[in-house]
Design a protein around this nucleic acid. Structure first.
Lengths: 130, 130
DNA sequence: ATTTACTTACGAAGATATTCGTAGATCAAT
DNA sequence: ATTGATCTACGAATATCTTCGTAAGTAAAT
């Protein structure tokens, strides 16, 4: 996985990355089928996109068999963090907690999830005390 | 403020919106000066951008005097929420709490902020009980 | 009234992202 | 070995975003 490079994936690229993060490894056909559920694009469009992503270093490709197999070359965590940082910066006036509350406010979360977050807050605070 | 329409602002548009959300109302000159602190673009570039945003319905414009005065036509909250939702959907596997924890984990937050979030969690839970 | 210092409007170039048709390779089944 | 299904590579059209030069208007100061 490693380095998230310097670039940021486009909207379409993120959709593909999302699928690959979930599936782990997949062919163009796999990705395209999954994509088709929510979108409406030709097969070669998906193919081209994934080729470009490979050139950019976003995807690894195993070309040993006729049908190539792709995996994400940039980690989900890194990408998430980069997008979050930019978003906090440009849209949330630099305040992470503002983002957090906005995210919580409009999403029904289970008690378990809320507890998990509370636990997380405690951990952070403990860590800061030391 | 009202409806956040169907569209999502581009990166550049968000920068301008951010400034207008903060300032409330501003001329192209105002926005451009502010923008220049972090960016390096010509005056007419900012102008054009704001004209387009006005056409798209992102900005209101008072053209009664020679120098037009702009305000944001879409609310910060709505825009934040739309961007958050898309992000949670495509990058965080639909889990808001995953986003929340990722956001908290890599940002140093003050005790006050953390408390505020905790309070917020309690409010949400109370609300759900009823 | 001319100059100077702004402004907006407009068009168009440049950059980037998205889409897809077509051609050629591969392989399994007839 | 021909057909049919599926794949990759490639090029190019289209769409969208970003940038800026130029022209024309306005208003204050000389």
């Amino acid at each position: 996985m490693s380095t998230a490079k310097n670039n940021k994936p486009t909207e379409s690229e993120l959709e593909i990355l999302g699928i690959l993060w979930e599936k782990g490894a997949a062919t163009v056909r796999d990705v395209h089928d999954e994509l088709s559920k929510s979108k409406d694009a030709g097969y070669t469009t998906t193919l081209k996109l994934m080729q470009i992503m490979h050139e950019k270093g976003y995807l690894n490709r195993d070309a040993s068999s006729k049908t190539h197999v792709y995996t994400a070359a940039i980690s989900q965590e890194n990408t998430q963090q980069q997008l979050l940082n930019k978003m906090i910066d440009t849209v949330f006036n630099g305040s992470a907690s503002q983002l957090v509350m906005q995210a919580l406010g409009h999403h029904t979360s289970s008690k378990e999830e809320l507890d998990k977050i509370r636990q997380y807050l405690n951990d952070i605070e403990d860590q800061q005390k030391r």
